[in-house]
Nucleic acid binder design. Structure first.
Lengths: 225, 225
DNA sequence: ACTACCATACTTGTATGGTAGTATGGAACT
DNA sequence: AGTTCCATACTACCATACAAGTATGGTAGT
């Protein structure tokens, strides 16, 4: 999970923000959960001020909704946003992987290989949570290698919504082996400078990470808008 | 300029945020300008709390940098971010305009036509500022027509940086007529469902709105990172 | 039984005082 | 003259008190 360092990492405000965000995206705080500045401030043992700051930031990312004088809740999953997140990832990742096929720094390629090894291990151990993180890291390395970190960061904002639905899907049928093979194919294509193949693989790959929203919606109607 | 409505529009915090953002993007507050909670709170005649909130939001968008116990400044223009903003727009707008060629709601098409008329007027009046806004609106309508508003909104976050450099360029050589012709071509292509042509036009179009960064950097070295 | 009203206990929004860290300029010393 | 040290005046950060809007449950009146 990527931490945005816009506020000082050590500050109380940042800690509350990153903790809450992690809990929201991991569904530890399910969509619709009521949050109150006071309540959260008590549990974190800080005053309302840094809590409020974190709420402001989370609201900007649409992860919470603030109803003035009424309360603050973890936002429901917006199917439109999830679909748009998939759209953004498809367009940007296809473009990035094409760039990667033109030129990609050797050290980043090694990072990808190391990442793939860890993926392989995690699959054997059936460690879905770790595999999830490794998948995120894999794609981030691609953006880093193409000097598109800023792009990756704003993409993460949308991705948070997509990831919440992936989290629901996680318990069902991850099909990690398939994802691993595709990652492998993508790296190989980059090595061969085969842009067309890489793009096609990426497209397929992304179509796999997006779950069937309708099914999830039926299973957890109270989590969706 | 699009207002994000994440905070209540009426609240002091939101007002300070949107005003400051507008002033930053318009270069009314040039890159590097020192801001202080106290100073701003006095000028807006509110307490430091809502000012602080606005700083948090602006920091999240990289429009200000907060140095703890040292001060807050309007961020310098980051050439990397500007380039990435161009990259993101290129990828996403090309994809969106292709979608638009498949299907585009009639009412949005009318909005585009109205927008084009206003552009024509503004060019005659040599009203660069208004033309700038109409250009933004034109592209936003495209995203709206394809049901990609969320995408447009996150794109705006990067676009803020691009727009600051466009603002510098504004005084030089806008070449609005050329931009207008391209807008015209794009709308016609959408009507004809000619995706390939639309995409090509869009690509050219976007290559035009991005100014020569090196020149700007030389002219305003203190504005850039 | 039903309705209108109001006290009360919430909520977020705002103001303000205090704390700790940082830059700066001048005084004292070498 | 040059260097060190320290008082002072900033800064962002945090805690707390108050203001204002909202939901709710009980009560009085019909």
């Amino acid at each position: 999970m990527v931490e945005s360092l816009r506020l000082q990492p050590g500050s109380a405000g940042h800690i509350v923000y990153s903790q809450l965000k992690q809990q929201i995206v991991s569904l530890e705080l399910p969509p619709g959960t009521a949050l109150s500045e006071k309540e959260v401030s008590l549990s974190f043992e800080v005053s309302r001020t840094p809590v409020r700051e974190s709420f402001v930031r989370l609201a900007q990312e649409d992860l919470v909704v603030v109803l003035p004088q009424r309360g603050t809740r973890v936002s429901l999953i917006d199917s439109e946003l999830v679909e748009e997140a998939r759209f953004m990832r498809e367009q940007l990742e296809k473009a990035v992987v094409r760039l990667a096929c033109e030129s990609f720094p050797e050290d980043k390629l090694l990072e990808l290989e190391r990442n793939l090894s860890e993926q392989s291990e995690s699959i054997e151990k059936h460690d879905g949570k770790h595999m999830f993180e490794l998948d995120e890291t894999f794609h981030r390395i691609l953006f880093e290698g193409c000097r598109k970190v800023g792009t990756w960061n704003v993409l993460q904002q949308m991705n948070a919504h997509l990831n919440r639905s992936r989290m629901l899907w996680l318990s069902a049928d991850p099909n990690w082996t398939n994802l691993y093979e595709q990652h492998r194919e993508i790296v190989d294509a980059i090595r061969r400078h085969d842009a067309d193949h890489a793009e096609r693989e990426m497209q397929e790959h992304l179509s796999l990470i997006i779950s069937n929203l309708a099914v999830l919606k039926e299973k957890h109607p109270d989590y969706f808008k």
